[in-house]
Structure formats: C-alpha cells, structure tokens
Simulated assay, not measured.
Amino acid sequence: MAAVQAMAKVSVGSPGGNRAAGSLGRRRGAVAVRFGGSWSWRKSPFVGGRMAVGPRRSRPASRNLVASSVQVSMNLSFGKTMKWWEKGLQPNMRAIHTAQDLADSLINAGDGLVIVDFFSPGCAGCHALHPKICQFAERSPDVQFLQVNFEEHKSMCHSLHVHVFPFFRFYRGAQGRLCSFSCTNATIKKFKDALAKHRPDRCSLGPIRGLEESELLALTANKDLKFTYTREPEVAPTMDDATEIITPDLPRLPTPPKPLVRQGSEDRALVSLGR
C-alpha cells in the first residue's frame, strides 16, 4: 500500500549525527526523511532530535468545548423543569391569560361553580397550598378552577382589588360572585366550608352574571388591559306604565259622621209630638 508511512529522522551535523543517513552524509540543520526505503534531506528549523511522520491522530476535545457542551446540556435540563404551579394540575384546572378570558370563562361556565385562584409565584403560602387545591380539584370534577398568576397579570389583579395571596373567589350562574376570601394551610377550613356550601348544583332563574358590574367597569377603565364592556341600556317605561305613574288611584274619602242628637228638653218634646 502506497500510504505515506514515513519515519523521518532529524539529524544535526554534529560528530554524533544520525547513522541511518548512511552515504547521504551529514548536513547541519537538515532532516533525513525516509520514504519507502529511500532517504532524502530536507531543511528543518529543528535542531537535533527525531521526528516521526505518520498518519494524523485525532486530538482530544479542548476543555473549553467540553465545558460549553456540559453547560448547554444543563441549561436545557433546567429549562424543561416544571414550575410548582404547573405540577399536579387536573383536567378541570386552567390558567387565565387575559381579562377577556376570565370574563368569557365565567359566562361559558353556565350554572356550574367556578373557583378563581389568585396566586403569586414568589408566595410561600401559595406554594404550600397548591397541592391541596389540586386534591380538591381532583375530588370535584364538576367544579372549574381558574388560575390567575399575579406576576403575569398585575394590572388585572389590581383592578379586581386582589392584593393578598393566595386569594379565592367563587362564582356561579345568575348569582354571580358568591364569596371571596384568603386562606393558607392553617386556615384551609375556609376553603372546605365554602366548597361544601356552594358545590351543590342549582338552577339559575336569570341570565348568567359572571363578573360583577363593578368589576367589569374597573377592567374597562384600566388602559393596560384590552377589555371592553358595554352596559345594557335601561328600558324606557311604556305608555301604560307612564299612565299608572302619572294618574295613580285616588284615595277614597272617609264617610262623614252622623249628626249628634242632643238630649235636651226641647228635643224630648219634639220626639213626643212626633215631629
């Protein structure tokens, strides 16, 4: 095989020079290279020593490349880590993205019970309570849980007057907002009692209210939110209603009392005469 398997031997023109050069002689600062059994001299900046010319070997990866690859893999692994509020979620738990999403979710829920969970990622109480809320959601598949992240929706939470975390609001059908409170692991009984009280199914006797009108107006007034709300026009009174208002029923006059009869002597005489 004519592959370049060359063993080059460097020789310096010194008395103890390379003997393998043989009859080629010794030249100072030259390199004796043997290709396929023959020798040839080539100039080299090296002074003395031996040099082997052969197939190129792969060098190990530099430490910088290894360190960078390890760092990238670590970043990827940390990026895939779930946040604590994303763990243990049930099918009836959903995150709210906008104010319009919150209003539409309450309207579309109909007569079903909806619990809005306001939390903050940096709240230790929210973190500790989250697993229990997931357990309540698992045991109550007919109840819808909506999550509102304070760090992502600060402006909306301020408009709804939510400043304490964790904070919960219960909504249902035509009744609208049922209750609102804040609780932690130490006061979890508030949540249990509210869920037991408002969980039974009830039929609404009117249109679905969703958010209170004051809440809707506050969201509309917030310029940071893309939310619009149009108040329903007030119904004008009809002609019949106007007639009833203008001409109400007049009160009846009392019956005049009968005249009193004197018991004097003259009256007795008239009575005896038949007058």
Rank of each mutant, 00 (worst) to 15 (best):
V4F: 02
V4Q: 03
A6E: 03
V10R: 04
G13R: 07
N18E: 03
N18G: 06
R19H: 08
R27L: 10
R27T: 10
A30E: 12
V31N: 08
V31C: 09
F46T: 07
V47Q: 14
G54L: 11
R57V: 15
R59L: 02
S62E: 14
S62M: 00
M74A: 09
K80M: 13
M82N: 13
K83M: 14
H97P: 03
A99S: 10
D101M: 05
L106H: 02
N108W: 01
A109G: 07
G112S: 15
V116H: 11
D117V: 15
G122F: 09
H130M: 10
K132L: 13
I133V: 15
P141D: 02
P141E: 02
V143C: 13
L146D: 07
V148S: 05
E152G: 11
M156V: 02
H158P: 06
F165D: 00
F167L: 05
F168S: 05
R169K: 10
Y171E: 09
L178R: 04
S180L: 04
T184F: 05
T184E: 09
N185T: 11
I188R: 03
K197F: 11
T230N: 04
V235N: 04
T238D: 02
M239S: 07
T255P: 08
L260D: 04
S272H: 01
L273R: 15
G274H: 05
G274T: 01
